[in-house]
Design a protein around this nucleic acid. Structure first.
Length: 265
DNA sequence: AATACGTCCAACCGCCTCGCG
DNA sequence: GCGCGAGGCGGTTGGACGTAT
């Protein structure tokens, strides 16, 4: 009997696109009763869906505060940068793009950004083969070379085609991640596991902690001002220590990323 | 107008982690 | 310590829609 009941429940579970009526039911239920157990929500709300489906629909579509529409250039650059740092950690990336969901970001990456990165990397490879390579071949660098602001109309940002030459003066105007925005000296020298521990045994925890600390700072991740590392870093030790952290964390990038890449792209 | 092809996005699937008994 | 269920995440797919031929 119990099996039959379960089978009936399964049989009743609907799949595919959500109807406006289903959306309305889910929205009203959550507004009235809040987010409790996802598995209980479809039963109580009278929906023929499973809990996972309800959760996905709410998170990706119905949740208040979601942004719809095209990604701005800044959002795209944030994705590119964070993807360079974190890889396919879409949920982590989405935490730094208010109103965007991990699913949306993931789709945008697969539809647009991945191709752009691939294109720029192949261009980079061509340049290298023809002896026309520039100083750095980092992932971040190759991506950023393809991104440029249309200076004639800043409200209408556009992407420069990969086969166009970008003047160096324009490259320097690109927004940059400035690690001094993320790291402050107190944190760096002290508490909460952010201090560099010179190859701790629990390296994955250390890396997670480091990323969390880096990304949870309230300071803006971007700055358009020209980087000047000698003034941004209080002393040479700070600079080298930061370099060590970056090397440690990004060793999976084959050592391609270094602090100069971030500051002088 | 019909068909083929490409793009994009919502949603599903499977795996992993975590908390609880 | 183990099993189980729930929730979360990333990869993948299905289908709607637009464009090219």
């Amino acid at each position: 009997m119990r099996c039959n009941a379960l089978e009936n429940t399964k049989l009743k579970q609907k799949k595919g696109l959500w109807s406006p009526d289903e959306d309305q039911k889910l929205r009203e239920y959550i507004e009235n009763y809040g987010l409790r157990s996802w598995s209980a929500i479809p039963i109580n709300a009278g929906l023929e869906r499973n809990g996972k489906s309800c959760r996905l629909r709410w998170v990706n579509y119905l949740r208040p505060g979601l942004k719809r529409g095209a990604f701005s250039m800044q959002e795209e650059e944030t994705i590119l940068t964070l993807h360079g740092l974190l890889g396919n950690k879409w949920s982590l990336i989405s935490q730094h793009l208010p109103g965007r969901t991990d699913n949306e970001i993931k789709n945008h990456w697969h539809c647009y950004l991945k191709k752009r990165v691939a294109k720029s990397e192949s261009l980079e490879a061509q340049n290298t083969n023809t002896g026309n390579n520039e100083s750095s071949s980092s992932y971040m660098n190759s991506m950023s070379r393809n991104l440029s602001i249309d200076s004639s109309n800043t409200a209408n940002c556009s992407y420069v085609e990969a086969d166009q030459q970008i003047p160096h003066s324009q490259i320097n105007k690109l927004p940059k991640i400035l690690f001094e925005d993320w790291l402050n000296l107190e944190e760096f020298h002290g508490h909460n596991g952010l201090a560099y521990n010179g190859g701790a045994s629990n390296s994955s925890n250390y890396q997670d902690t480091l990323v969390d600390e880096l990304l949870s700072n309230e300071a803006p991740a971007y700055s358009t001002e020209t980087a000047n590392h000698e003034s941004n870093y209080q002393n040479e030790d700070m600079f080298h220590s930061t370099q060590m952290i970056i090397d440690d964390f990004f060793n999976f990038n084959g050592g391609d990323i270094n602090i100069e890449d971030f500051l002088y792209m």
